[in-house]
């Protein structure tokens, strides 16, 4: 294991990365979308590097990243928060957690499902 991730009460990426910060937004979630931004900061290796490399070619949700890295979701949260705090990871909130699902969204989901048939 690399440097043990630290617990924090307010993930710093909420303050430093755009798009979030709406009232009621809570930190990283299984469906937070992770994508590498900028270079891997010096001094971060191990699982931090693995996560950063995993989401360099494209975006994945935190849950998918955890599964690919074979890490518990909760550990992946801390690793992602470390990277985001250093600006090495962009994090986008999953829309339903940031704002409750409304009828318009549910109707569009329904037509998307019907189109599968």
């Amino acid at each position: 294991m690399s440097t043990p991730p630290r617990r924090r009460l307010v993930p710093a990426y909420l303050a430093t990365h755009g798009r979030t910060a709406a009232a009621g937004t809570h930190g990283l979630d299984r469906l937070s979308v992770l994508h590498a931004a900028a270079d891997l900061p010096a001094g971060l290796g191990g699982e931090h590097r693995q996560l950063w490399e995993l989401v360099r070619p494209g975006a994945l949700t935190l849950a998918e990243a955890a599964a690919h890295l074979r890490l518990p979701v909760s550990a992946t949260v801390f690793i992602a928060a470390d990277l985001a705090e250093r600006g090495a990871l962009s994090v986008r909130a999953p829309i339903p957690s940031a704002q409750p699902v409304n009828r318009d969204l549910a109707e569009r989901l329904l037509s998307g499902l019907r189109a599968l048939k």
Partner: peptide
């Protein structure tokens, strides 16, 4: 099998994610 596969990255359409 599941974990060995290459990651399937999300489409670049900024999709709404639902669960």
């Amino acid at each position: 099998d599941v974990r060995s596969g290459a990651p399937a990255y999300l489409p670049p359409t900024d999709p709404v994610l639902m669960k």
